[in-house]
Design a protein around this nucleic acid. Structure first.
Lengths: 139, 139
DNA sequence: CCTTAAATAATAATTATTGTTATTTAATAA
DNA sequence: TTATTAAATAACAATAATTATTATTTAAGG
């Protein structure tokens, strides 16, 4: 895995401890955390970090294409350091969000293009259901 | 088109002028309005209507399966009286949201089922791009 | 009509997010 | 290495969408 400092610098972003902490954290989890969760997980080791900085930093990262924002219908946005377009599955029971392989839906985009007169740029594909754990617990 | 009163009654919902107004409005538009927009469009003819009632009514309708909530990444939710699962295209320029035919993505669901151990219940497929009007204006 | 449970209006409260500003700091040049 | 400066941060205020509260009103059934 490439060094966070290099990655930030490559995007022309000023390298700060806060940015390093946030990007490193995001790129090491598959939990798709929201701003609050990121903040709480970094607070212990970065006692002066403020939530507003987390929000602003995430905005910067998104604008630079370093991360993507995820809107799965919850009150707050989630974030993903994997920026290749890929679908997500959301557990309606425990809220877990998992990645689905991107290549599985390649031709879907072409289909969508045929169906509208839009010039499509991106998509958000979210599937809702019960994860294996919740599925078994309720039954 | 079936009478709104019948539709509400069939779902076991108490029939009130507010509910009639909101459902009738929603089922006659393809604009996918949010709560605020619904409220403002009904205010002139329903002067005592309150925004909180719009929100609560939309919740009731959603819970009864009369409408669906749409989350296209904006701050506020949009609503759609068409409850058959279908994808949407969102213009990143003017914010317009249009429906895509549902049947075009039938096998997509099967694909998604194969890819996870989730038991899938629904999905939200949103495509982002520029609508034909915006596409031509900027270029 | 009467009764009653449920819906509404008005408004307060909450929550996620964004704006403001004084202070600090990373990057660059001297 | 140090000085300069534009940008980032922390702290906190403000905003906007949504939800909660409560007194009042009303639809539905008897």
């Amino acid at each position: 895995m490439k060094d966070t400092t290099q990655i930030l610098r490559a995007k022309g972003l000023k390298v700060t401890p806060q940015r390093i902490a946030i990007y490193t954290m995001l790129s090491h989890t598959d939990e798709h955390p929201n701003a609050e969760t990121i903040y709480r997980s970094l607070e212990p080791t970065n006692p002066t970090l403020s939530l507003a900085t987390v929000y602003k930093t995430l905005d910067f990262f998104k604008a630079s294409g370093l991360i993507q924002e995820l809107n799965v219908g919850e009150a707050s946005s989630r974030y993903d350091a994997i920026v290749t377009r890929h679908p997500h599955a959301v557990c309606t029971c425990c809220g877990k969000v998992v990645d689905l392989p991107a290549d599985a839906f390649e031709e879907l985009r072409h289909r969508a293009c045929e169906l509208t007169d839009f010039s499509l740029e991106s998509e958000q594909l979210i599937f809702y259901g019960k994860c294996s754990k919740c599925k078994n617990q309720t039954q």
